[in-house]
């Protein structure tokens, strides 16, 4: 990641569109959507420089960004793999085998819940209720829900994600670069 984070022109356009949703002088309201944008655009997680950049974009103080980024669980405070695999573990999903799905992911990828594969491809994260209780167990990857999961469907999903990564290597290298800077960044 470059030392000074900066949005692409397209992301700056999206920033303008988001900020326009709120009244004059209330641009702080745009913070959560802009943090989503920054995370997607700038390496998959919110480093201190990225959060400071967001603060400057919205003319608010850095602490106002840190306190929000640290509150909401969807914001990654440390580097994650190219694909963050989030498995719902709550209530109805647990009744329908979520623990087995999480166990299968851990065994297949050789990492524990919360960990990232050494190649920077996958991060595993069990998560609380995703609101897909009738179709559990459910896995969320990015903006996509994968429902009624079984071990076989998990294997197929991992294969599909690897295929995606192979056809779009640039984003993968960004994520890997982010993962390798993890130790030095020291941000949590």
């Amino acid at each position: 990641m470059p030392d000074t984070p900066a949005f692409s022109p397209a992301a700056l356009g999206e920033l303008g569109r988001i900020v326009s949703h709120y009244p004059e002088g209330k641009q702080k309201s745009a913070l959560i959507p802009v943090l989503h944008l920054a995370q997607a655009e700038l390496g998959g997680w919110l480093s201190v420089p990225v959060m400071d950049y967001v603060a400057s974009l919205l003319s608010i103080t850095p602490i106002e960004v840190y306190e929000v980024a640290s509150f909401y669980t969807m914001f990654n405070k440390e580097p994650v793999g190219r694909f963050k695999i989030e498995t719902c573990r709550t209530g109805p999903c647990a009744l329908n085998g979520a623990e087995d799905i999480i166990g299968h992911l851990e065994a297949t990828l050789g990492i524990r819940d919360g960990g990232t594969t050494p190649d920077g491809m996958f991060t595993l994260q069990s998560t609380e209720c995703l609101g897909a209780c009738g179709q559990g167990p459910v896995i969320m990857v990015g903006e996509t829900y994968h429902e009624l999961m079984t071990a076989a469907k998990v294997d197929a999903l991992l294969e599909e994600l690897r295929r995606q990564a192979a056809t779009m290597p640039s984003a993968a290298s960004t994520a890997t670069a982010a993962a390798t800077t993890a130790a030095t960044a020291g941000v949590k």
Partner: peptide, 27 residues
């Protein structure tokens, strides 16, 4: 009419926490 995303916080279903999230603060 606009849409506003949350970011993973059950508490923001509580109406005043939701308003905090909409104002760009912790829920």
């Amino acid at each position: 009419l606009s849409v506003h995303p949350g970011a993973g916080a059950y508490i923001c279903g509580e109406e005043t926490a939701l308003l905090e999230g909409l104002e760009g603060r912790r829920g």
